[in-house]
C-alpha cells in the first residue's frame, strides 16, 4: 500500500506535486477545491462556469508549482492565482461579449430583502432560498463590482492584494469597492426603501 497521502503535511504535498506526483497533487486539490470552487461560483454565478474556472485555477497551480518558492503561504498564493484567473475570465468575456440566450434570459431572482420585519441577518442567512437570492443579487452587479466584492468579502484579500491582482491602484480599489458595496446594498435594500418611500408619500 501507498503511505496515505492524507497524512502528509502541506509542504510535503507541494514538493511531491511539483515533481509531478499526481496522487499528492490530487490530495492538495482535495484540501482546497471547496474554497476555490466557492470563489469561482460566487464570481461566475453558475456551476458550469465555476467548474471550468476552478479547474483552470488548479491547472495553473499545477503548472506553476515547480516555481512556487514559498515566500507567501500556499493559501495566499492559490488565492492570488484564483483572483488572476477571475480577472482574466472577465477580460475574456468582454472580448467575446456574451450573448448566449441562457444568459440573457437568466431568471431574475433578486427581488431584494422582504419589506417589513426587522432584519436579523444571523437567522435569515441560514435559509438556502435566501442564500440563492443573495447570489442572484450578486450576479446582477456589474462584473467589476462583483469581482472586487468577491475578492474582498469571500476571499478576504487586502486592498493591496486586490490592487496587485487587478493591476490597479489601491485608491482605485478603495473607490471601486465603495461603489460595489453601495450597489449591492441597493440591490438588497433598494426595494425596501422604495416601499417605505411610497408609504410615506401616502401618509
Amino acid at each position: 500500500m501507498h503511505p496515505d497521502v492524507r497524512d502528509l503535511d502541506e509542504r510535503e504535498l507541494i514538493k511531491r506535486s511539483a515533481a509531478g506526483d499526481l496522487e499528492a497533487f490530487s490530495e492538495l486539490v482535495r484540501r482546497y477545491e471547496k474554497k476555490v470552487f466557492t470563489v469561482a461560483y460566487r464570481f461566475t454565478g453558475n456551476y458550469s462556469d465555476a467548474s471550468d474556472l476552478a479547474q483552470e485555477v488548479f491547472i495553473r497551480v499545477y503548472q506553476a508549482l515547480p516555481r512556487f518558492r514559498g515566500e507567501a503561504s500556499f493559501n495566499t498564493w492559490l488565492y492570488r492565482i484564483t483572483a488572476n484567473l477571475c480577472r482574466d475570465e472577465l477580460r475574456r468575456q468582454k472580448r467575446h461579449k456574451k450573448t448566449s440566450l441562457e444568459e440573457m434570459t437568466a431568471e431574475n431572482a433578486c427581488p431584494g430583502l422582504p419589506d417589513g420585519n426587522s432584519l436579523s441577518p444571523d437567522e435569515i442567512v441560514e435559509q438556502r432560498e435566501f442564500q440563492e437570492m443573495v447570489q442572484a443579487c450578486l450576479n446582477e452587479l456589474p462584473d467589476e463590482y462583483r469581482l472586487v466584492l468577491v475578492m474582498r468579502e469571500i476571499q478576504g484579500l487586502s486592498y493591496a492584494e486586490i490592487a496587485a491582482a487587478l493591476d490597479i491602484a489601491q485608491g482605485t480599489v478603495k473607490s471601486r469597492l465603495s461603489r460595489a458595496r453601495q450597489a449591492f446594498r441597493q440591490k438588497l435594500f433598494g426595494r425596501r426603501e422604495h416601499f417605505k418611500f411610497l408609504s410615506r408619500l401616502l401618509e
Binding site: 461560483y41 460566487r42 444571523d122 443573495v134 469571500i154 458595496r181 449591492f184 438588497l188 435594500f189
Partner: peptide, 12 residues
C-alpha cells in the same frame, strides 16, 4: 448588513 450577508454565504 449587506456585507455580513455576503460573507455568511456558505462554501460550495
Amino acid at each position: 448588513a449587506s456585507m455580513k450577508l455576503l460573507r455568511a454565504l456558505p462554501e460550495v
